[in-house]
Design a protein around this nucleic acid. Structure first.
Lengths: 226, 226
DNA sequence: AGGGCATAATCATCATGATGAATGGAGACC
DNA sequence: GGTCTCCATTCATCATGATGATTATGCCCT
């Protein structure tokens, strides 16, 4: 199933069905299961496995009864978006891309936090700022980075937009999984961590104060300095 | 498979396996197919269908031989991102959200176009600007909007970041599928379309001139006026 | 014309058995 | 110790048959 692996028989059959479904008008009848199974040249069980795969992708629907069988379905736009993300070649993906997109979305999330953050939300953000401060004191840049990510995830959680949250936290996850190995250490790290901590504390304060101009300035600074 | 439909037997079994896989450490052995099939309480064929589903989601891997069977896999971050997008409840998704996220990404794409657009790319953008002009003359706001979307898709296609392109065009697709029914008509539309056309033509000119400040100003204007 | 019923088509799921391939581990040999 | 072979384990795919559910259509009755 992963890029580069040879396709299993059900996967090949699924791809065959997908090609037929995409070439048809939405709602068009593709044929009975038996007819399509013969077209794919696989056994009944293997065909059923393939069918599960293409149904899960929203490409076909299946009906019993006279005139029944397989019908081309139109993937909903959300499903298309999900599958286009799944189809991204992981080898062509850089952390820099993810960071860049994430930074573009940061401003939206802070905007949402200005409007939607409750006192309880802000208290939790402050807890995380406290954890970041402990990490600075301990000169532990790994712990600092982790707390920092948790702070950003917490800010994101305030947004009422599920789509925005999902995309953002997915990107954060991707960045996390690639970044832990290259964290700065040493005396210069202390100044950097302190500065970074200050920036985040000021950001949370701007959210708590509902101070949009300050928040926007801080996001801009956040996104243009590492 | 869609939200709200009763789960089929293979889907229920797949969910059961997914729960087990997520609860385990990556790489941990979950058991033989036969053991897990008994746990799920389904027939062999149904279990195999379920297994295809969870394998496709990157949650398990399967090995033959002594000590073989099912193993918990760790979804790659890209796969997690794709599935989190797939899991977004379509009923909770608004076009306004999609537009907002798309606008945030627009600046990145224009930035990429400034650096990566070839003369051929720019010529094609200009063709689309020409189509938009024809639509203004014909007072056809549907055709204008379509040409406008194609222009944006064309600008996006210049970006070397597959991730950015995929997310952006998926959002554009989502916006397209929801928006066609509410386009303005009438005399006021002419002034609006002309202004909008002018804005896009200036944007393409800024890209062609590699004029970053102008491009940024135009994106900002693009994103703050409808 | 509308509603209900019967029939046929088609699918969802179940059950069973078989062959060939892939894998890991143990034992034998150098 | 390293390598190779053999054996047992386990899976991938195939084949066949069955039952019960769902669906569309046609016919009959009111």
């Amino acid at each position: 199933m992963m890029n580069g692996d040879p396709l299993t028989r059900p996967e090949m059959a699924a791809e065959r069905i997908a090609v037929l479904a995409r070439a048809a008008e939405p709602g068009a009848r593709l044929g009975t299961k038996e007819e399509l199974r013969a077209t794919c040249g696989v056994s009944v069980g293997t065909f059923n496995e393939a069918l599960r795969l293409v149904q899960a992708r929203g490409l076909v629907s299946v009906r019993p009864g006279p005139g029944g069988g397989l019908f081309a379905a139109e993937q909903s736009p959300m499903v298309r978006l999900g599958h286009s993300v799944l189809a991204i070649d992981a080898d062509q993906t850089s952390v820099a891309d993810a960071v860049r997109i994430r930074n573009a979305l940061e401003a939206l999330l802070v905007e949402d936090a200005l409007w939607h953050a409750s006192p309880a939300d802000i208290a939790q953000m402050r807890d995380l700022i406290g954890e970041m401060a402990l990490a600075v004191d301990a000169l532990d840049s790994t712990a600092f980075t982790r707390a920092n990510w948790r702070l950003h995830a917490r800010i994101a959680a305030v947004s009422p937009s599920e789509m925005l949250r999902s995309i953002y936290t997915g990107l954060l996850d991707l960045i996390e999984s690639h970044t832990l190995a290259v964290l700065p250490t040493g005396a210069s790290a202390l100044a950097h961590l302190s500065q970074r901590h200050r920036l985040h504390a000021d950001l949370v304060q701007a959210i708590a104060d509902r101070d949009r101009p300050a928040a926007q300035r801080l996001v801009e600074e956040h996104n243009t300095t590492i």
